[in-house]
Design a protein around this nucleic acid. Sequence first.
DNA 1: ATTATTTAGTTAACATATTAAGCACTTTAA
DNA 2: TTAAAGTGCTTAATATGTTAACTAAATAAT
Lengths: 140, 140
Amino acid sequence: MKKLEDSLTLQLLRSRESAMQFFRPILQETGFTEQQWRVIRVLNDNKEMDAKQLAERCCILSPSLTRIISRFETDGLIIRNRSEHDQRITLLSLSDKATEIFKEVSPKIDQAYASLIGKLGEEKMQQLSRLLTEVTRLTP
Amino acid sequence: MKKLEDSLTLQLLRSRESAMQFFRPILQETGFTEQQWRVIRVLNDNKEMDAKQLAERCCILSPSLTRIISRFETDGLIIRNRSEHDQRITLLSLSDKATEIFKEVSPKIDQAYASLIGKLGEEKMQQLSRLLTEVTRLTP
DNA sequence: ATTATTTAGTTAACATATTAAGCACTTTAA
DNA sequence: TTAAAGTGCTTAATATGTTAACTAAATAAT
């Protein structure tokens, strides 16, 4: 019984670690961290979004995102703009340079993901996805 | 298609976050972090083990474990011993003080875990567990 | 036996996680 | 309209994640 105490959270941790190993070599080449890449990928899909939304989508807390964005801005990868309707809000978008990088790296990521699905099986992948969604919805 | 690129790893991240919310309030009270508690829990079950095994069991990398152990040692929660057979190996065990703390906190954790299972359902819990195990085994 | 390789653990350097506190701007309410 | 409460982002402080380099001890290779 005791062994089950946190086994779910540990299992989630371990399995994510396994899944990440499909992508790590690619990220390693690019020099981006996991989190940095999530920011780039999400911004690529959403052209312009505010920091709060971006943080939620990327599963990154605001303080971490602030640092990532600051670095990206000085590196010329991201563009910061103040919203005109609400001066508190920061609107973020990728620079052309970052968009270019995304286009180069993206296919490799897709390939790795296909390999992951291939190994696990499409069906199990969907089962798993459904269950994870349920777990995610357990808390607000 | 593109949305699936890293959706599994993100889903694993999000669902773990949800699951953790059942336990965070308890850890908050104790003042221990997630990782610190894992160390205590695993050491409580295994009386004495070397640092490498402990790290693997806790899903914590060696450098992180080193820091955690060092702190725990100065706080009188953990006892370090050199193995006699192999002088490279550090054997670790909980102090009585730490064992006491574990006994106080443990029931609350069990209760939270029961609540989690109650909400998700025993059956889905086991399905999920099986699938996660498969994902974990995808990589060596 | 001596060197070379491996292994366990630590240290270092940088990036992120987490919580709390702070500031600036908005909205609400009296 | 103005003080109070809320919101979005940033800063700060501490802990862990991650990779690489390093030390000491054990093992393998010659």
